[in-house]
Design a protein around this nucleic acid. Structure first.
Lengths: 205, 205
DNA sequence: TGACTTACTGTATATAAATACAGTACCCTC
DNA sequence: GAGGGTACTGTATTTATATACAGTAAGTCA
């Protein structure tokens, strides 16, 4: 990993920074750090931060309050992805407000764009390794390239399917021969693509 | 238990907060938010924050700078789970220090204990929906109940297997009939259980 | 021995940023 | 048509917090 080694004290301060940020969602002030370590002066904190910055572990914005960014490998931050319980019928827009829970995931692994999670029901994608009860992570978009796994709204139900091109026709196909493919155009009700599946999350027991 | 609905403007501000924190590791100041939205005054920001706080999406510390904590359900505590690239041979202890990357997950979904992630190689658990290249989330423990999916060290390789009891014998079984079961006791080399699989993570493309 | 780094105390000053108060305008809905 | 919520502008004041300068003490290097 290659960053310069830290002294015990510097390591302790860095750990404190990380846990403070994880807990509060913002960086501590110099006085808060000093208080946590029992320092009666701020200069000690400044010295340590200067060392951490010189060694590449943190980055600061001069003059700004609490402006400490943790660098390095451990991705300091994560976003809460809303988990859609049920997709409401007939809504022109996806009601992302209507969620029960959130899944905390890394912003780096997610990539750009708006995301949501959806619990898979049924075994239509079991041959693609997507099981009943799994959560799929979906990047919100209304089109996708053939070959992608998408979440599509079919009437009232959101389903996970492959988007495949067969000659001139683009259609939604299950990864299970027991299910009939659905053409994207000319089907009633008309399928609407909600997004592309970019990840999968499952818990055991 | 969903939180009260937000107006478009409030949602936009909350999204801005989340992305700012994700990027910088600390919360924005009121003037930074005002600047980002093109406000010439701070009162608009204050009003929005007040609304977000009243609805339970954020929490602030009066008087303190940048002291905005995003509540919105997600991580009171997000942890970085180390991803083990390869399990080194012959080491008595698991060298958790020796990782390349980390996966950020929330502690609420993980549960207590030490965890690590491991990238699955091979198709021995394909019928359990665990595919080649998937990451399994493992809670570190040296025993497990029969029926659990475990990560075991077999010589130099870490393998993912079911732990099953057959009569008097406890053994490791693949979810693929092409693989032979391995008895937990009396096998050479002796299998060592590294932990129980508690989750699975996969990315597409 | 002296120069250098780490690890702080103590006091003082400057300022980034929160707070406060007074408005304007546009919805709603009762 | 009065009252409440949302969505701001504009100016002034206060303060939490960063910065600066001057030290002390111990350990390491050479």
């Amino acid at each position: 990993m290659s960053l310069p080694a830290l002294t015990d004290r510097q390591r302790a301060l860095l750990d404190h920074l990380a846990s403070f940020v994880a807990k509060r969602g913002y960086a501590p002030s110099l006085q808060e750090i000093a208080h946590a370590f029992g320092f009666s002066s701020l200069q000690g904190v400044k010295d340590h931060l200067k060392a951490l910055e010189r060694k590449g572990y943190v980055r600061r914005r001069p003059g700004q309050r609490r402006a400490i960014t943790l660098m390095g490998q451990p991705r300091p931050f994560a976003t809460g992805v809303p988990i859609l319980g049920r997709v409401p019928a007939g809504t022109p827009q996806l009601a992302l407000e209507q969620y029960d829970e959130r899944l905390t995931l890394d912003t780096a692994t997610l990539g750009p764009g708006r995301h949501f999670a959806l619990q898979v029901k049924g075994d239509s994608m079991i041959h693609a390794g997507i099981h009943d009860g799994d959560y799929v992570l979906v990047r919100q978009q209304d089109t996708a390239e053939p070959g992608a796994i998408v979440v599509a709204l079919l009437g009232e139900d959101a389903t996970v399917k492959y988007l495949r091109r067969r000659g001139r026709q683009v259609r939604l196909e299950a990864a299970n021969p027991a299910y009939q493919p659905i053409p994207l155009h000319g089907h009633v009700p008309a399928p609407r693509i909600l997004g592309r599946v970019v990840g999968l999350y499952r818990t055991f027991r």
